[in-house]
């Protein structure tokens, strides 16, 4: 599923955010990515999401080389990867429904199909009742669930989450984690970056730790 070989990422200015990372995540696995602030968690997710190119090394996603994609191919790759952030990244004035539908809108699906699949995803995260509400007028937990519904509405093979519970209460954080577990149970590979120790110890999933850009064995 995810195969990284000797991946190094230096940002302009000389910061080595990732150094010689070799990592394999098989299909259907649930993995925590941990490390102190500045360890390189976000950078690693960005490479997987093709938001940044690696400086050296190879990245294979589903067997395809993500390091050497044409620019026009990147949107197509992203439609097969769900992405969830600490700050939700929703369109604040658009409704919960429209935010979820956006991921289908960009694919040019027929209106009816968009309606059906967005409703399904909203039901799946338990937000049917809130779907007409502008995103900005929902709670943090609801916003994150909207973002998760948007990430899943395309039925991606991979879900990447960067500090998804960073802005949420502990109770709500657990709800979000339960959603991720259910996503994983459907067969989606899940990679969650977090420095929340409680979460990591609470679940029996594999943990990959970064320190100053290097993998800890």
């Amino acid at each position: 599923m995810i195969q990284m070989y000797h991946v190094t990422k230096s940002y302009p200015g000389g910061v080595e955010a990732l150094v010689d990372i070799t990592l394999h995540v098989p299909r259907g696995e649930f993995v925590f990515l941990t490390g102190a602030s500045g360890a390189g968690k976000t950078t690693l997710l960005k490479l997987l999401f093709c938001a940044e190119p690696p400086t050296r090394g190879q990245i294979l996603l589903n067997g395809r080389n993500a390091a050497r994609l044409r620019r026009a191919a990147i949107p197509l790759l992203r439609r097969q990867i769900g992405m969830v952030f600490q700050d939700f990244r929703l369109l604040p004035r658009r409704s919960v429904f429209e935010n979820v539908a956006l991921a289908l809108e960009v694919m040019g699906l027929p209106r009816r199909e968009i309606r059906r699949r967005a409703s399904e995803a909203l039901a799946w995260v338990g937000l049917e009742a809130r779907q007409a509400q502008p995103a900005i007028r929902t709670s943090g937990g609801e916003q994150q669930r909207t973002a998760i519904a948007r990430a899943l509405v395309n039925e991606p093979y991979l879900l990447l989450a960067d500090e998804p519970t960073g802005n949420l209460d502990p109770d709500i954080s657990l709800e979000v984690m339960e959603l991720f577990k259910r996503v994983n149970a459907r067969g989606t590979t899940v990679l969650v970056a977090t420095h929340n120790r409680d979460l990591v110890t609470r679940y029996p999933f594999r943990t990959v730790a970064l320190e100053k850009g290097r993998l800890l064995a």
């Binding site: 369109l91 956006l102 960009v106």
Partner: peptide, 15 residues
């Protein structure tokens, strides 16, 4: 910000 979100969900440049 809207553009970033669109890129996130896989919108093409023309979209």
């Amino acid at each position: 910000e809207e553009t970033e979100i669109l890129q996130l969900v896989g919108a093409t440049r023309s979209f």
